[in-house]
Design a protein around this nucleic acid. Structure first.
Lengths: 142, 142
DNA sequence: GTAATCCTTGACGCCGACGTCAAGGCAAAC
DNA sequence: GTTTGCCTTGACGTCGGCGTCAAGGATTAC
């Protein structure tokens, strides 16, 4: 099959396939007219790449999986190099998730504090002779 | 103070300050020699920006906080626009964390499956007459 | 005075994974 | 035969937040 069909069957674009080829990840045979030619096995490799990309793997990180498949293994993750990528990725994910959770907690705390402060200002404003309203009025309170 | 001192006090670089000014986020007064001039209040604004940046906020998302401070409020997050950013960010963080946890689970499952498959292959190999070894040997098993 | 340090603007570089155009060749349908 | 559609390579654009020169003016230290 040619590049357009492979791209369509894998749900990607021809540009992406040419990019993968330029990176040496998915080289193509060429027909007599210079057109790229692919087979079902290439589709398999491409699906492996796309799956990992969807997981957020960098393109280079998919290389061991592709090479594993190309070596004839039934799955791309049966080779040690692929397993190593999995493990490294798990560590990175855990670290990232932890950081994001910490940020989430901080932002949540800040939001709660700010809302609390605004409520107190609003309550004070309801009291005759209380403090001036603050936001969106252009006035400085101090 | 001049740009170098402000950068040093905020733990950032002069390039960053010029970038913020180019974005209209932190404009500077100019001395008679054309040098940028900043005061303590600018340091406060800059610290607000940096804190949010460290949280992973985009630069544009820090603008409401800076404007809130510039409007004279004691904290950058006391204005409605800032609170809206907080809330939107919380939603984005929750969504992102959820996605990453889903990916983490998938990768973990894949890793476990692949390790299991390799163990079975290894065990089979120990049996005389069992299947051929697979990885790193260049041989096709099927 | 002069060397070292600071400041100015302008502009290109970076990173990753492509998108998007341009100019032209080959092919298949009618 | 000609229109339509697929293919080719090449090359610039995208996004964010700056880093890193380069060329030159101002200031400060000695």
């Amino acid at each position: 099959m040619r590049i357009g069909e492979l791209a369509a069957r894998a749900g990607t674009t021809t540009r992406t396939l040419r990019y993968y080829e330029s990176r040496g990840l998915l080289p193509a045979r060429r027909g007599s007219n210079g057109y790229r030619t692919y087979d079902e096995h290439d589709l398999r490799l491409l699906e492996q790449i796309r799956t990992l990309q969807d997981f957020g793997f960098e393109l280079e990180e998919t290389r061991p999986f592709v090479e594993c498949l190309r070596a004839g293994h039934p799955e791309g993750d049966l080779c040690p190099a692929s397993l190593a990528v999995y493990r490294r990725k798990l560590g990175e994910l855990d670290a990232l998730i932890g950081e994001l959770q910490a940020v989430r907690a901080q932002v949540g705390t800040q939001l709660a504090k700010a809302e609390q402060a605004r409520e107190e200002l609003a309550a004070g404003a309801e009291v005759p002779g209380g403090p001036e309203p603050v936001c969106e009025l252009g006035g400085r309170t101090r």
